[in-house]
């Protein structure tokens, strides 16, 4: 990771910006929304990937300690993935999120709620995502 940051630094103009976007590592909750009401049915688990999120934080800090960048700003935002069925959501997540786990009882709970006759309904995963802005020095 630190090596990649060095490469990016080399490819930026003096004073150029690096934006890093990565998950915070907090377990993302799964909600079923029924006519505006949000019901939490559980959380997505990860086997190991959350470790890499903390390693990313460390790599960014190391890059700043090395003098390659200065940290300009950072924040976090909620990224939601929503679907009409838990099967659709699970299928998408399993294709795009390598080691994610949703326990069977969570899937059952969501399915039961989504059988509701209410017209406005969906199931949603909400991840907290960190975004950091680093700046390469204007002069070497």
């Amino acid at each position: 990771m630190v090596h990649a940051l060095k490469q990016i630094r080399d490819l930026l103009k003096p004073g150029g910006l690096l934006i890093d976007i990565h998950p915070s590592g907090e377990p993302p909750p799964i909600h079923v929304h029924l006519d505006g009401q949000a019901i939490c049915v559980g959380w997505v688990k990860e086997e190991n990937e959350f470790i890499s999120y903390f390693q990313t934080d460390d790599a960014l800090a190391q890059a700043c300690q090395n003098g390659w960048f200065t940290r300009q700003s950072h924040t976090r935002f909620a990224f939601t993935t929503a679907a009409d069925t838990i099967q659709e959501l699970y299928e998408y997540l399993s294709q795009n999120w390598e080691d994610m786990i949703i326990e069977p009882q969570i899937i059952s709970r969501a399915e039961d709620l989504l059988r509701s006759s209410q017209p406005e309904k969906e199931v949603q995963v909400r991840e907290w995502i960190k975004m950091t802005c680093l700046q390469k020095p204007a002069k070497e």
Binding site: M1, A4, L5, I8, L11, L12, K13, G16, L17, L18, I19, D20, I21, H22, P23, T56, A59, L60
Partner: peptide
């Protein structure tokens, strides 16, 4: 000589 104003690591670092 190509260098960029902005680089984005999009969930990839």
């Amino acid at each position: 000589p190509t260098r960029y104003d902005i680089a984005i690591f999009s969930w990839s670092l």
